[in-house]
Nucleic acid binder design. Structure first.
Lengths: 114, 114
DNA sequence: CGGCATCCTAGGAGATACTG
DNA sequence: CAGTATCTCCTAGGATGCCG
């Protein structure tokens, strides 16, 4: 399991909470953004980086690796010059989309401004 | 300091992401657990503390204060001896419950073991 | 282009002791 | 009973540099 914003002591999730388990997967600082970008075909490393200028390369890489390790996204390398890498949502990751959509709807309704 | 554009703190959500806004509210380590306990009438400080022995008093207090500050829960003090404090989910907090339920369903389905 | 390897820091979380 | 007040520690996330 990848590390996330929800702090964990060793591998123990509070009371083995299923909600926490879910949040550990989508709870990284940039993960919702990344998932959203990939859904909208902004699925290449450099494009994503440009789309989120507040994140560093390392941070983007870390979040991508975690999402990949959790099986949410898939990494596809094209043997080309210059090299090209694309990411796509897996079927497993797709099962999370309804939840993310629900959160986005809620967020839009309740977040100040915007 | 702050040689780059914006120093990020918890008040700044990446690209003003609505999903992140939502997660900042329920994303504390023990917040889903707390919300679940309150829903099931384990709504007093000491009862909650006993129900989550891995959390310290300080941590419980912090999480409760944050949930209260975000308007998710309400703190009700009874002027009794010994003192009694109960917490309840606000209407605003209630609007989050469907999302939390969806996460729990997903988590139960996909988390290993348990 | 798409990464690792390094190093660093802010702040979330824990432990403990004290209080009205 | 239901908290504050401190302190320490850990880790997610950020800033750079190099590399195939």
């Amino acid at each position: 399991m990848a590390k996330t914003s929800v702090r964990k002591n060793k591998d123990f999730n509070p009371t083995n909470c299923a909600v926490t388990f879910c949040m550990n997967i989508i709870g990284g600082k940039w993960k919702p953004v990344i998932i959203h970008l990939i859904r909208n075909n902004t699925n290449r490393y450099s494009l994503m980086l440009k789309a989120m200028p507040e994140a560093s390369k390392q941070t983007l890489t870390n979040q991508l690796r975690e999402l990949e390790a959790d099986g949410v996204i898939e990494r596809i390398v094209f043997a080309e010059v210059p090299p090209r890498v694309e990411y796509k949502i897996t079927a497993y990751g797709g099962s999370l989309l309804p939840i993310i959509d629900a959160m986005r709807v809620w967020g839009r309704k309740h977040m100040p401004g915007v």
